[in-house]
C-alpha cells in the first residue's frame, strides 16, 4: 500500500516536472504545492500586444520569462529584425513601466556585415540609449556566458543575444540552459538570429521577421503625406508557439506611442509624385549656343495623365 502511494507520488512529481518544463499551467493541486518552492514572485508575466488576434495566438501575450527567438531570413533583413527586437523592449518599457538597463550582446560577424546598433536610431525608437549596455564578445562561448550571467544577475530588464546563422556550438543543450536561467530569473532573453534557418530549440516562441513597406506619415488632419516614409512596418510570422498554424501579421511600430498597430494596406488616395521644385536647377550654359528651340507652336493641352 505504502509502496503504491510512493509510486503515485513519484509519478505525480514527474508529471509536474514535465508540465513545468513545457511551461504549461499546472493542475490546481500541483500549483498549490509549487507555491512552496516557486522562486518567481509575480507569476507568469506576459507582454500583451493589444492586438486581439496576435494575443490569442500567443495565449495572452509574449511570455517574459523565457527565450523568444527572432529570426530573419537573410542579412539584408537585419535592420527589420533589429528594429523588431528593440520595439519589443520598447513595448515592455511602455507597458510594464519597467525601468532599468538592457543588455545587447553583439555578434562580431553581424557587426562587420550590417553594422552596429546606432544610438541615434535607438533613441528615436523610443529607448533611452544611455540604458543600453553593449557587449562585444569575441567568441560565441563568451556570448553565451554573458547572456547567462546577465540573466542570473537580474540586473537587466531584457537581454538581446545576437547570433548569425545556426552555429553548432549553440545547440539544444545551450538553449535549454539559457531557457532555464531565464525561467529562474523571470527575465526575458531575446535571441536575435540573423540569416538563420528554423531550428529546434528551447525558445518558447519563434518569430520570423521580414521588412514591409512603411506606411506614409500621418498628417494632423488624418490624411497621409504622399511619398513619405512613416513608421516601420514588420511582417511577423509566428513559426513556433502554442498555436499550431503559422500565423502572419503585418505590424506597424509607432515610435511615439511605443505601441504596435495592425498595418492597414496603403490607401490609393495619396498622390505620389516628385516634388515640384527640385532645388537649384542647372546653370545656363554660358559660352555655347542656346539649345535648339522646339519646333511649332506650344499649345496648352490638357495633361494626358
Amino acid at each position: 500500500m505504502a509502496h503504491a502511494a510512493a509510486a503515485q507520488e513519484k509519478l505525480f512529481a514527474l508529471r509536474e516536472q514535465i508540465a513545468r518544463l513545457e511551461g504549461r499551467s499546472l493542475p490546481a493541486m500541483a500549483a498549490a504545492k509549487m507555491e512552496n518552492f516557486a522562486a518567481r514572485s509575480g507569476g507568469e508575466e506576459k507582454l500583451s500586444f493589444d492586438i486581439a488576434a496576435l494575443d490569442d495566438a500567443l495565449s495572452g501575450g509574449l511570455p517574459l520569462d523565457c527565450i523568444t527567438e527572432i529570426r530573419s531570413g537573410s542579412f539584408s533583413d537585419a535592420g527589420a529584425a533589429t528594429g523588431f527586437s528593440l520595439s519589443l523592449v520598447g513595448l515592455m518599457k511602455a507597458r510594464k513601466a519597467a525601468t532599468g538597463p538592457m543588455l545587447w550582446i553583439a555578434d562580431g560577424f553581424t557587426a562587420g556585415e550590417m553594422g552596429i546598433p546606432y544610438a541615434g536610431g535607438i533613441r528615436q525608437f523610443g529607448i533611452d540609449s544611455r540604458t543600453i549596455f553593449h557587449a562585444s564578445p569575441r567568441r560565441l562561448e563568451d556570448a553565451l556566458w554573458l547572456a547567462e550571467g546577465a540573466l542570473e544577475s537580474k540586473a537587466f530588464i531584457a537581454t538581446i543575444l545576437e547570433v548569425h546563422a545556426n552555429p553548432k556550438s549553440f545547440g539544444l543543450a545551450e538553449s535549454r540552459r539559457l531557457s532555464l536561467r531565464a525561467k529562474a530569473a523571470g527575465r526575458p532573453l531575446f535571441l536575435l538570429r540573423h540569416a538563420g534557418k528554423e531550428e529546434a530549440s528551447s525558445a518558447s516562441v519563434r518569430l520570423l521577421v521580414e521588412p514591409a513597406p512603411a506606411l506614409e506619415r500621418p498628417l494632423p488632419d488624418g490624411s497621409m503625406l504622399g511619398g513619405s516614409i512613416g513608421h516601420p512596418v514588420f511582417n511577423i510570422t509566428l513559426e513556433k508557439s502554442r498555436n499550431p498554424a503559422p500565423l502572419s501579421f503585418r505590424l506597424e511600430w509607432n515610435l511615439h506611442d511605443r505601441q504596435f498597430h495592425l498595418a492597414r494596406d496603403r490607401g490609393k488616395s495619396s498622390f505620389h509624385k516628385l516634388p515640384a521644385h527640385l532645388g537649384a536647377s542647372l546653370s545656363v550654359s554660358a559660352d555655347r549656343q542656346d539649345r535648339a528651340k522646339a519646333l511649332g507652336d506650344v499649345v496648352a493641352f490638357e495633361r494626358a495623365s
Partner: peptide, 26 residues
C-alpha cells in the same frame, strides 16, 4: 539592482577586459 549591475559589469570586465562591455555616449 544597482549592486547586481555593478557586480555583473565587474565580472565581465575582469574576464574579458574593460573594452568588452560598453555604454553609448553622445
Amino acid at each position: 539592482r544597482e549592486t547586481s549591475l555593478a557586480d555583473f559589469i565587474d565580472r565581465v570586465s575582469a574576464r574579458f577586459g574593460a573594452g568588452c562591455l560598453q555604454v553609448y555616449q553622445h
